[in-house]
Amino acid sequence: MIPILIGITIISFAVIHLAPGKPTDLMVQLKPNVDLEAREKLNQIYGLDKPIYVQYFNWIKKLARLDFGRSFIDNRPVMEKISERLPVTILINVLAMAIIFLFSIPIGVKSAVRRGSVFDKTTTIFVFMGFAAPSFWIGLLLMSFFGVRLGILPVSGIASLDFENFTLIHKVLDVMRHLVLPVSVISIGGLAGISRYMRQSMLGVISQDYVRTARAKGLPEKTVIYKHALGNALLPIITILGLSVPSLISGSVIIETIFSIPGMGRLMFESVFTRDYNVIMAGLVVSAFLTLFGNLIADIAYAYADPRIRYGK
């Protein structure tokens, strides 16, 4: 895992630094009286004049002490910036993930068991509509309906203005109210994939010999489906769960922008435009770590769920 992580940092470091533009450009761009000498001096201060591999080694030396450096924009420690943003993004995505799985698994199972039924067909249509519709559009629709027309849900941010004065319960409720719309938008988009996957996996399992065996021994249909079939059909879903971690941050960019939520997605997006090297790199390290960690968890969960992996063959 560690070598992969280092590999990722090397490649991203190279790509980011090879892209045209430097963080110092932004500081001097609109100031015509800054001459070339001053620019070079600025680069020197930030160490941007050194060869790229030297810069990389300096960066990774600091990383070993968990020091991500400071932002080029506001000179705050990157660690601080990320630690205020990351929890918001994780909270939104974990909630969305939970909702997606809570709904898509039963939907998938039911469509598979009653393949070709009215239920199967209607859910297929709705789920695909949710999948095909762009999330910003759904976001805007929900905002205008629930936020503007009905006026029952807030449409931006994650907390009300006078948040500081609320009691704890009130605070939690307030955040929840703010999260309803963004979480719904992510869930609607994710529902299609997972429920389709679940349906497909379930269909494959239902025609397996051991499901027939379960029926042949006279088990009630519910036990056959939920114990024998579902137990096996969930295995590939575990992998999907691990694979969906990377979309945490990338998928959040749009949602966080629409709902003006101060999360990682937006932070990364803005940092790329301002060439805020340290923030970009820190964000990439965090998301790479989350991805690898997610995969590791998925592997462990898979081994736990599937005895054939656990014992080897």
Partner: peptide
């Protein structure tokens, strides 16, 4: 009883 004992038993139980 079925033909394939390797597929007729549930692998996760």
């Amino acid at each position: 009883i079925f033909q394939e004992p390797s597929t007729s038993l549930n692998p996760v139980l």
